Amino acid sequence: MRRAHAGGASLRSLADKFHLKYATVRAAVQGTTWRHLTDPPPVPASGRGGRHALTSAQEADLVRMREKSGATYAQLGAAFGVSEATAWHVCERSRRPATD
């Protein structure tokens, strides 16, 4: 699972593939469980211990990368130093009409 996630597979797709709960897969990938496995090393939890905010330019770049390359949210999160969930939220916000 760690190798697949590092290669861009989302935690949700891995949970579905292995018939596991999302939280179980996340814990295994981050090394919270299965600590005895060291190859490859666990993927550190992003966003833990603080909040990383993207600038509006970074958010635009993230959305553009998603639209042009079809990058997964996991890949986008890794590229921009945020969680998979944050990448998803940025893309979702970009789809909503602006309200002023």
Results as ranks from 00 to 15, higher is better:
Y73R: 01
W88V: 02
A79C: 09
R12Y: 05
V90G: 11
L14Q: 04
T24N: 09
V43A: 14
E84W: 01
R12N: 06
T86R: 06
T72L: 05
T32S: 08
G7Y: 09
L54C: 05
G8W: 12
K17S: 13
G7V: 11
Q58P: 00
A60E: 07
S69V: 04
H89Y: 08
L14I: 12
A60T: 07
T32R: 13
M1A: 14
R95T: 05
A87P: 04
L20A: 13
G31L: 10
V63C: 01
L37V: 13
A87N: 04
Q58H: 00
G49L: 07
G31R: 09
V43M: 15
R2E: 00
P42R: 05
E67A: 11
A98V: 15
D39P: 06
A9I: 10
D39Q: 12
G8Q: 08
A53T: 15
L11D: 08
V63M: 01
G70Y: 02
R3L: 14
V90P: 14
A57N: 09
T99E: 14
D39S: 13
T55D: 00
S69T: 13
R2C: 04
S69Y: 12
S13P: 06
H19P: 00
A9L: 09
G8A: 11
L76P: 04
V63T: 03
P41K: 05
L11C: 12
D100A: 13
T55Q: 00
T38F: 06
T24I: 02
L20D: 14
P42T: 08
D39V: 12
T32N: 09
H5F: 11
L54Q: 04
T86V: 01
P42A: 15
A23D: 14
T72F: 05
R93E: 14
P40T: 07
E84I: 02
L54G: 04
R48F: 07
A4E: 15
K21V: 03
T72Q: 04
T24P: 02
Y73L: 01
D39I: 11
V82S: 00
L11F: 12
P44E: 15
R48A: 11
A6F: 11
A28P: 01
E67H: 10
R35E: 07
S13I: 10
G50L: 09
A71G: 08
A28K: 02
S13M: 12
G31N: 12
R93G: 08
L14R: 03
H5W: 08
W88N: 06
C91H: 03
P44F: 02
L62Y: 02
L37S: 10
W34I: 09
A60C: 01
K21R: 10
T99V: 15
L37T: 09
G49C: 07
G7T: 08
D39A: 12
P42G: 09
A4T: 07
G77A: 08
K21P: 01
A45P: 09
W88P: 00
G70Q: 05
R66P: 04
R66W: 06
G7N: 13
G81P: 06
L54R: 02
W34K: 06
S10A: 12
A60N: 02
T38H: 14
S56L: 15
A27N: 14
